[in-house]
Amino acid sequence: MTTRSDIEKMILRVAMQDRAAFEALYAATSAKLFGIILRVLKDRAAAQDVLQDVYLRLWQGGASSFRAGRASPITWLATVARNRAIDRLRRDRPATPLDQAPEVADSAKGPEALAIDASDRARIDGCLDELKPDRAAAVRGAYLDGDTYADLAARHDVPLNTMRTWLRRSLMSLKDCLTR
């Protein structure tokens, strides 16, 4: 199991252009980051593009902006990934009003993709149901609805650092649940 300290060290080594650390960081974090990006974009191909962009930016100097001790390394990576996904959404947003937008061919997913999505969604929902209701609501708000930690802390009437702790611990619980 990769620990917080391991991920932190990998990020710091990636900042020094250590290829082995980059490969290890990708192996340890890409599935989680992909899930976050996919939830924001709701498009697998776009999510894969953004995930590649996240790691490319880390390699090209983005890792040097990580400050050990200020934030959990996985939270930092998740924030970077979420922000890149939101940037992609904003960039791809239609420039014209919907009533004036040109017609687009149906890009609906096929039955197999829908079944896989439904299965994944059911597993995640089942794991979220294992959390306390307020923790599950905070996770949904932060990672599905794009709420900021400050907004969530105010909504749940808890200090900001408590909200960060809730989210970190909840994500660890979700990870444990999803690996069962």
Rank of each mutant, 00 (worst) to 15 (best):
A31H: 10
A31K: 11
G35N: 10
I37H: 04
L38S: 10
R39A: 07
R39I: 05
L41E: 04
L41A: 00
L41P: 09
D43M: 02
D43C: 03
A45M: 07
A47C: 06
A47G: 02
Q48N: 11
V50I: 09
V50C: 05
Y55I: 04
R57Q: 08
L58E: 02
L58S: 10
W59F: 10
Q60E: 14
S65F: 08
S65G: 04
F66D: 00
R67T: 11
R67Q: 13
R67L: 07
G69D: 03
R70N: 07
S72R: 00
T75A: 13
T75Y: 01
T75S: 13
L77G: 05
N83I: 07
R84N: 03
L89A: 06
R90A: 14
R91K: 13
P94V: 14
P94K: 07
T96Q: 13
L98E: 09
Q100S: 15
A101I: 10
E103D: 09
V104H: 11
V104S: 11
V104D: 07
P111S: 08
P111F: 05
E112R: 09
L114R: 11
I116K: 10
A118W: 07
A118L: 15
S119Q: 15
S119M: 11
G126D: 15
G126I: 08
C127L: 08
D129T: 09
E130V: 09
E130T: 12
